[in-house]
C-alpha cells in the first residue's frame, strides 16, 4: 500500500533513510535535560521523524495482499510500536509503565493475529495483570515526589539512538532478505479467512506449511497444553522450580536487605 506510494525509491535508500530517521527521532525524543520550550519542540520533531521512520519501515515490509488482514495487523502493530517508543522516551516512570501496558496490549494483538491465541491472552494476564502492577507498586514505594533529575537526562542519548537504529537496520535488512524468495501468500486464503472470521470452522490445512500448525483449530489451547505437558514436561517442572526459587530468593533478599539498608537510610536522612 505504502510501497505503491513510494515506488520510485530504492529499498536501500529507503532503509538508510529509515535508519537515519529512527536515530534522529529517538535522539530527539530521549530526555536530554533541555529547557521547557526547546524540549517541547524537540519532542514534536522527534515524533514527526518517528512517523517518517515508521513509514519507511512499513514501505520496506512485505505486503499481504489482503486489506482486511493487513489493516488489523497494522493497527495492533502500530499500537505496540508507538506505545513501546513512548515507554522508552517518557520522562515520568509512571507514564512509562502505563505506556508499557498499552504496548502489551498491542503485542497481545499481534500475537493473536499471528495465531498465538493463548499467548496473547497470557501476555495480558501475566504482564499487564501481574508484573506491571508489581512495577507500579515499586514505583509507589520508591519514586520521590516530582520529576527526578535522572529522569530528565539520558545516558549518551545520541550513541544509544544510533546503536539502536543500526541494530534495527541490520535486522530489517536480514528480514528483508527473506523476501527475495517469492512469498507463498497465495496459498493462505483459507487461513486468512478463518483468522478474520475468528473461528476455527474453516481451518483445513491448505498447505504443507499449514499442515503441522493448525493453530486456528478450536482445540488450540488443548493442543498447546498437550505439547507443553507432553514433550516439554521436564522443562515445565524446571520452570516451576525456578519460580519457587525466585520467590524464596526475593523474600530472603528483601528481609536481609532491609536490616542492612536501615543504617544507610538513617545516614542519608540525617543531613
Amino acid at each position: 500500500m505504502i510501497a505503491s506510494i513510494l515506488p520510485s525509491i530504492s529499498p536501500g535508500t529507503l532503509l538508510a533513510g529509515g535508519i537515519t530517521a529512527t536515530a534522529a527521532s529517538l535522539w530527539l525524543l530521549l530526555p536530554s535535560g533541555r529547557s521547557g520550550a526547546a524540549d517541547r519542540t524537540a519532542r514534536w520533531l522527534g515524533w514527526l521523524l518517528g512517523i517518517v521512520a515508521l513509514a519507511s519501515f512499513l514501505a520496506t515490509g512485505h505486503r499481504l495482499g489482503s486489506v482486511g488482514e493487513e489493516a488489523v495487523f497494522l493497527t495492533v502493530a502500530l499500537v505496540a510500536v508507538i506505545s513501546g517508543a513512548a515507554t522508552v522516551v517518557s520522562r515520568s516512570p509512571v507514564y512509562a509503565a502505563i505506556w508499557f501496558a498499552m504496548a502489551l496490549a498491542g503485542v497481545a494483538g499481534v500475537l493473536l493475529v499471528l495465531g498465538g491465541q493463548f499467548l496473547g491472552v497470557a501476555t495480558i494476564v501475566v504482564y499487564a495483570g501481574a508484573i506491571l502492577v508489581m512495577f507500579l507498586f515499586v514505583l509507589m514505594l520508591a519514586q520521590p515526589a516530582g520529576l527526578a533529575p535522572y529522569d530528565r537526562v539520558s545516558n549518551e542519548p545520541l550513541l544509544a539512538a544510533v546503536a539502536g537504529a543500526v541494530l534495527l537496520g541490520i535486522l530489517s535488512l536480514s528480514i528483508g532478505r527473506l523476501t527475495a524468495e517469492p512469498p507463498s501468500c497465495c496459498l493462505m486464503s483459507g487461513t486468512k479467512a478463518a483468522l478474520l472470521a475468528g473461528s476455527g470452522s474453516a481451518a483445513e490445512p491448505t498447505s504443507a506449511a499449514e499442515a503441522g500448525i493448525d493453530m486456528l483449530a478450536d482445540n488450540h489451547v488443548a493442543r498447546l497444553g498437550g505439547e507443553l505437558f507432553g514433550r516439554h514436561l521436564l522443562a515445565v517442572e524446571v520452570a516451576g522450580v525456578l519460580l519457587l526459587v525466585a520467590l524464596i530468593g526475593s523474600i530472603a533478599i528483601v528481609s536481609r536487605g532491609a536490616a542492612d539498608a536501615a543504617p544507610a537510610a538513617a545516614r542519608r536522612v540525617a543531613p
Binding site: 515507554t87 527526578a148 529522569d151 546503536a163 539502536g164 534495527l168
Partner: peptide, 16 residues
C-alpha cells in the same frame, strides 16, 4: 525487531 531495538535504546539511555 522494532520492539527489541526500542527496548535496547531504552536500556542504554534511560537512567531510571
Amino acid at each position: 525487531a522494532i520492539l527489541f531495538a526500542l527496548g535496547l535504546v531504552g536500556i542504554l539511555a534511560r537512567r531510571n
